[in-house]
Design a protein around this nucleic acid. Structure first.
Lengths: 236, 236
DNA sequence: TAGTGGTCTAGACCACCGA
DNA sequence: CGGTGGTCTAGACCACTAG
């Protein structure tokens, strides 16, 4: 483990435990360097991580302080954690996936563009209903290039696609671009999510990338409006 | 302007302009250091910014590459930029704000909690309709502690609250926590956003912080479903 | 003026990749 | 093996804030 990660983790623990009082200044960087036996660049990098996560605030000529609200809100970085997929997000809950559609086809122009493949590249077309604790939670429509993510079958779909990609195929997932919007419900939503005719839907359109930047997934997740909230943290 | 920002901007422009081909490796860090006449740490920092924004990908022992889909998506970092408020986001458009409600009151328990103030602290209660290019865009309900953000009046509300905070009060805005959800439209939405009875609404609940971590704003922004999409970029 | 964080350097060693 | 990016150092100078 890198030194700056270790230091960052240690200081985060100290903040959480209240070792550094919220009102007072934290030790200055030079002192911390001496204590952790590191150079100033390394310490700055460790502190950068905490600052980016909204945990501390630094001001030139003033000092380093703990951001009060970081103590109340435990949702920091929910966004980035979410790249791991539903199965990981809901680690402690019972998740069942019902496969509604699973076939392989040539992509439309739109889908080909978003997956950065040609229209001659076959892609999986998957529609799954994800059920959490026996309640319908989200309806996912997913497109993936079959040459990039091979060996998808019903068994994988009942488990976790992300698990298959990272553990069976040994690929690494890098990140995701998402668009979140409200939408009217359609017949599929009403049938599977058991929502009313006029209930809104929260739709998340997502392009997922492998760590080398190649798109591997283009998907639309449709959520019941009363069971899903998307959380985001922005820090200037 | 810092050197690493300048370099980062220049390389971003090169990527956008196609100066660096998408398929090939970018020049290695040492070459770039020579070209830009900087140390390797500085160059790494410049590239870090682009990597974090999902524009490039680097792999140890391999090289630095452009992430293909970053060429299609010009909305990278919309999230962080958004802390600057609507007036800054829509810099080139005509924005008009109609004040629907503006008074001062004692907060409910919920509002007091989210603003980290006591229920005896007076807060502004503001409802504004923001109109972009003559089309109703968003209905904003905002609560702010009046002692923290003084001197709010109708004139400020017709302009930009964020501008008032940063330029008149000389406070700095630090960041925001947001929850995004779909919602049914209510009578106020229908009246001011001109949406249909069964049109969904995209609602953004936001707590804004000053740079020193103090919450200054608790707000609900309700958007027409057909005119607003929330964009997010996650990088592992 | 003293102390803080922000930036930058020139170089070092390491881990990883492909040939 | 050579070339890549990842980390780290010891020190320097600068910009900002407070007293």
């Amino acid at each position: 483990m890198s030194k700056y990660i270790t230091i960052s983790d240690e200081i985060r623990e100290r903040i959480k435990s209240g070792y550094y009082p919220v009102d007072k200044m934290m030790p200055d960087e030079h002192s911390l360097c001496r204590e952790f036996n590191c150079s100033r660049m390394t310490m700055k990098r460790a502190l950068d991580i905490l600052a980016q996560g909204g945990m501390i605030y630094r001001k030139r000529g003033h000092g380093t302080f703990i951001i009060q609200s970081s103590m109340q809100n435990h949702n920091v970085n929910v966004l980035s954690d979410e790249t791991v997929g539903l199965s990981n997000l809901m680690k402690d809950r019972k998740i069942v996936s019902k496969v509604i559609e699973f076939n392989i086809q040539f992509p439309s122009e739109e889908i080909a563009k978003n997956l950065s493949v040609s229209m001659n590249t076959p892609v999986y077309h998957i529609i799954r209903l994800r059920i959490v604790e026996d309640e319908p939670y989200v309806l996912e429509e997913t497109y993936m290039p079959s040459n990039l993510i091979p060996d998808i079958n019903e068994e994988v779909l009942h488990d976790s696609i992300y698990h298959h990609i990272e553990n069976k195929l040994n690929l690494k997932i890098g990140g995701a671009h998402r668009k979140i919007r409200a939408s009217k419900s359609n017949e599929l939503d009403q049938k599977y999510l058991h929502c009313g005719e006029h209930d809104p839907i929260l739709e998340v359109e997502q392009i997922g990338h492998l760590d080398i930047g190649i798109p591997f997934e283009y998907s639309f997740s449709r959520h019941r409006y009363d069971r899903f909230t998307f959380i985001s943290v922005a820090v200037r």
